[in-house]
Design a binder for these strands. Structure first.
Length: 857
RNA sequence: GCUCAGGUGGUGGAAUUGGUAGACACGCAGGUCUCAGAAGCCUGUGCCUAACCGCAUGGGGGUUCGAGUCCCCCCCUGAGCACCA
């Protein structure tokens, strides 16, 4: 290894020089099976968009890179990987437009991202690079899906999607704006399609409990808690007046208010509605249901904010606590997807019911008395029961328990828990995603296959289409990966299915249920009774799938036998630190936790939580304080900054901007400051002729104050890196450098130590100076400097003098000064004594080593 | 509407957790070098002052010898959630 021959700090020469060396020598390789302690630091891998790297990427990536380099210097075997979350809609849209395979566009974008990331000098282990669109990667995504499938955690259901008749395609939520397609502005409607759904709700409690064990930002934990939305209450059974129709089940968190129930509300889609509708009401009910059905959930919520609506449907239910006859309404403020889709309305003690009851003139009897005699309704707080025969005077918490128990004894209810969390809609009607390793077969064929297969779910996953029951038969694990077939057109099928539905040869097959082999149905049935007629699943997986488990593949990315070996899983475990944007606080981080917990239950991973410590880097705003966007023209391109100032300066500036987690504006002037700092240090080491600066000395020693500062800096920089406080670490190095500039000579060993501290932040410059300062090998393989605690102790201290709490002066005094000494010094102090003269000292407060406050009158 | 997180110089931000508010950097001003400019270097820079005094961490009140930091009320900004019964 050699340095460049630059005489000046020519970063355009120095940075590529070192990047070429790293490219060739691969010094950042993490070693599986090392005896060293491990440290796994993970970035959220990017979606390689056509726009290239955004300035927000290098922000988080620089932070983790500094930590990775620091940890290596502290003797850790560091795993610091990167890869590509490369399935996704933009690549597919590009393919539709250009007719080229999305893979080619994706590979181009990846090449550009890789170039940009390498230009920043990040110490990734490129031997572990992964790409979610690589069949050797998604083979394991499909494998994990099969594990979920086998455990009954995947099922199919008809679920609504956005369908645009004009474009003849389904649209993602983000492609629908105000009820119109984003492209073309055509009207869209809800259409029910067969969808895969993952039973994440089965893990609701575990996902909630696990949050206790992780070191995450509180806000993110709370968001996940709110998203899961656990709520305890009771399911209460109301008999219907028309007993032939059975019972009406409702969920409530307030069984203590049952005596205050004056009407019931069903969601408009509730299955009992048609049977409960009276002839006189039928027309109004039908009309209301139609309007509600046309609205999306989003519309329903925004409309609802304005005013509640509903219709009486002409039937009655019987309150199980007192037999009261309660009218049944439908209203769209009750959602079919939560609880039982039906509620008891207690207008006195629920704001929404109150608003509705006022509008439709329904009675509002009070059943909870507020403690302060507060008469205002609605009242949702605590209190004692009133107007509730048999329970009057009970405290509400007590009454909840007692009423629930009494209902249970009568078989009219039970305590129960509900969640806001819904099962995860896991399919997309798209081309550019992982195909489901599933073939749909007839019931009889499934039954035959089941005899030969041990990897089927306890209950078959079925779907009825045109009156025919189809069963989901998985590919055997040995038949994975199931790659995407080539298609003629990336346009959707026109029936709402993905473009895969157009590929007849791939779609309709003879399927060997034992081996997973397939031949086109057009070729006729091969010999042997393991062959069944099938149609492949045409949906693909959502983009979340690949990112749900990528942190595990990095442990052992080339393994062809399993997603990661047991040894690798045991040695590396899960990331010690995960850094990424807060925009993933719920979805990605919840989905990944869910998959990880399933893998844990399978015995496939050794720990229950995937991300021990999580950190969100803040958003970098444009110069104008606005969010960066092309339309505002305030986007900062990393390539430009690297060209003008170098990667080291960009890295340093991104970290100097402010606390990592803060949202902060980019300031093009501010970057000059850190660039000057690097130049200053270069000039301290290298003279104008390109040789070592004569200021460097083997024999010189620092002044006592600067020597102390050096040790303080070593301490602070190390601690700040561990705590991800890079802005203050940099400012401390600036303080030290400013002091070194004032020294008569610079001891070479100090320049060396400074280079080491700077190395994680500005690695190219540090490597260059390390060699030029005559050090052997690479700065990265040097052991991190240690500070001497004895050097941190000063012989003098600064004491602040206050008179009646006001700062009046300070003095340097020997550390062994007593309070009496200090009072004497204060009295002699030219700034302090005027405030003391002619007054009498009442009291002194001495904070040892810091401050003396003299109270006088 | 609800729940968090924040409001510190002209700007980005520091402040050992109750002990010198404004570190470090940007910007600005003056000086130095230069034929000149750029770069560099030196000095200054919260506000008000000639200086002292005084004032100052969104506003108001409180606790304390002492409050950016703790407590109460209000205002503003950002994020998330938003009929979940």
């Amino acid at each position: 290894m050699k340095p460049t021959d630059c005489t000046d700090y020519d970063f355009l020469k120095i940075e590529p020089h070192w990047q070429a060396i790293w490219e060739q020598a691969r010094p950042f390789r993490a070693e599986n099976g090392s005896a060293k302690p491990k440290f796994y630091v993970l970035d959220m891998f990017p979606y390689p968009s056509g726009a290239g790297l955004h300035i927000g990427h290098p922000e988080g990536y620089t932070a983790t890179d500094i930590l990775a380099r620091y940890k290596r210097a502290r003797g850790f075997n560091v795993l610091h990987p990167i890869g590509w979350d490369a399935f996704g809609l933009p690549a597919e849209q590009h393919a539709v437009k250009t007719g080229t395979h999305p893979a080619s566009n994706t590979q181009n974008n990846i090449a550009n991202f890789r170039r940009q990331i390498k230009a920043l000098g990040f110490s990734y282990d490129w031997d572990r690079e992964i790409d979610t669109t690589d069949p050797e990667y998604f083979r394991w995504t499909q494998w994990i899906f099969l594990q979920l499938f086998k455990r009954g955690l995947a099922y199919v259901d008809e679920r609504p999607v956005w369908w645009c008749p004009e474009l003849r395609t389904v649209l993602a939520n983000e492609e629908v704006i105000d009820g119109k397609s984003e492209v073309g502005g055509f009207p869209v409607e809800r259409k029910n399609l067969r969808q895969w759904v993952l039973r994440i709700t089965a893990y609701a409690d575990q996902l909630l409990d696990g949050l206790k064990d992780v070191d995450w930002p509180d806000s993110t934990k709370r968001m996940q808690e709110a998203w899961i939305g656990r709520s305890e209450g009771a399911e209460v059974v109301f008999k219907l007046e028309n007993a032939a129709l059975g019972d009406l089940k409702i969920f409530t968190t307030r069984p203590d208010t049952l005596f205050g129930c004056t009407y019931m509300v069903l969601a408009p889609e509730h299955p009992l509605v048609p049977a409960l509708t009276g002839d006189a009401q039928r027309q109004a009910v039908e009309a209301y249901r139609k309007v509600a059905a046309a609205k999306s959930d989003v519309d329903r919520m925004s409309d609802a904010a304005k005013e509640k609506t509903g219709v009486f449907i002409g039937s009655y239910a019987l309150n199980p606590v007192n037999g009261a006859r309660v009218p049944i309404w439908i209203a769209d403020y009750v959602l079919m997807g939560y609880g039982t889709g039906a509620i008891m309305a207690v207008p006195a003690h629920d704001e929404r019911d109150h608003e509705f009851a006022v509008k439709y003139r329904l009675p509002i009897p009070r059943v909870i008395a507020a403690a302060g005699g507060n008469e205002q309704l609605p009242y949702a707080g605590e209190g004692k029961l009133v107007n509730s025969p048999g329970y009057d005077g009970l405290d509400w918490a007590e009454a909840k328990k007692k009423i629930t128990a009494d209902l249970a004894a009568k078989g009219a209810g039970k305590g129960t828990v509900n969640y806001k969390l819904r099962d995860w809609l896991f399919s997309r009607q798209r081309y550019w995603g992982e195909p489901f390793p599933i073939v749909w077969v007839g019931e009889a064929d499934y039954a035959r296959a089941a005899k030969r297969r041990g990897d089927l779910p306890a209950q078959p996953v079925t779907f009825v289409e045109n009156g025919v029951t189809l069963c989901a038969l998985p590919l055997p694990e040995t038949a994975l990966p199931l790659p995407l077939p080539d298609v003629q057109s990336y346009l959707p099928s026109g029936t709402g299915e993905s473009p895969l539905a157009n590929v007849g040869e791939w779609l309709d097959i003879w399927f060997d249920a034992e081996t997973g082999a397939a031949v086109p149905a057009s070729q006729g049935k091969p010999a042997g009774d393991t062959w069944v007629r099938g149609r492949r699943e045409t949906n693909t997986m959502p983009q979340w799938a690949g990112s749900c488990w990528y942190y595990l593949r990095y442990l052992d990315p080339q393994n062809a036998a399993t997603f990661a070996s047991k040894d690798a899983l045991n040695y590396w475990g899960v990331p010690d630190l995960y850094v990424g944007g807060a925009e993933h606080a719920v979805l990605h981080l919840l989905y990944a936790r869910f998959w990880h917990k399933v893998l844990f239950d399978l015995g496939a991973v050794p720990q229950a939580e995937p991300f021990k410590r999580l950190f969100h880097q803040g958003i970098i705003l444009g110069e104008d304080g606005q969010k960066m966007s092309k339309s505002r023209g305030n986007v900062v391109n990393p390539d430009d900054i690297i060209r003008d100032y170098g990667a080291d300066t960009l890295r340093l500036y991104l970290m100097f901007l402010g606390p990592l987690e803060a949202m902060k504006p980019w300031n093009p002037k501010g970057i000059e400051g850190v660039h000057r700092f690097l130049r200053k240090f270069w000039r301290e080491c290298i003279g104008e002729d390109g040789r070592l600066n004569p200021r460097l000395s083997e024999t010189a020693v620092l002044s006592a104050g600067t020597e102390k500062l050096l040790h303080e800096t070593i301490k602070k920089v190390g601690e700040d890196i561990e705590g991800l406080r890079f802005n203050t670490a940099i400012s401390q190095m600036m303080i030290l450098l400013n002091a070194l500039l004032k020294e008569p000579a610079l001891p070479r060993r100090v320049a060396v130590t400074f280079t080491q501290m700077l190395a994680p932040f500005a690695p190219h410059l540090a490597e260059e100076l390390w060699l030029r300062l005559g050090q052997p090998g690479s700065v990265m393989s040097a052991v991190w400097p240690v500070y001497d605690p004895a050097r941190l102790v000063a012989s003098t201290m600064t004491i602040v003098f206050q008179v009646n709490g006001k700062h009046r002066g300070d003095a340097q005094v020997p550390t062994d000064s007593t309070e009496a000494d200090l009072i004497r010094i204060a009295n002699e102090h030219p700034k302090v004594s005027p405030h003391l003269s002619g007054k009498s000292l009442k009291r002194t407060i001495y904070v040892k080593g810091k401050l003396l406050n003299l109270l006088v009158v």
